[in-house]
């Protein structure tokens, strides 16, 4: 079993975590075309590489971001969303 480091709780076995898919920024839903939205909803960047992903530490209920290489399965860093990056997020954008 792999280990993963939750930014709040430290390094724990993978069995305590739930994978939440890639962290993705969607198009502005008010201006995008239907096709662009459909592509956002359904398509994924499936090729291997460094990805920003959602992970959930189940016992503590912590969602965080892990930067992981999907080819080597090595995690380079983990952090709380917003704590270590300056990304605006999909829904906030959308709700403006």
């Amino acid at each position: 079993m792999k280990l993963l480091t939750c930014p709040m709780n430290g390094t724990r076995p993978l069995s305590e975590f739930i994978f939440g898919g890639e962290y993705r920024e969607g198009p502005d839903q008010n201006t995008c075309t239907d096709a662009e939205w459909a592509a956002f909803v359904h398509n994924r960047s499936g090729a291997p590489g460094d990805k920003k992903e959602w992970w959930y530490h189940s016992p503590s209920g912590t969602w965080f971001i892990a930067e992981r290489n999907t080819l080597t399965d090595k995690v380079s860093r983990t952090y709380l969303l917003g704590a270590n990056n300056n990304n605006s997020n999909t829904a906030q954008e959308a709700s403006k």
Partner: peptide
């Protein structure tokens, strides 16, 4: 809900 809250703050 927790994930959404993380995004929406």
């Amino acid at each position: 809900m927790q994930r959404s809250q993380q995004m929406w703050q």
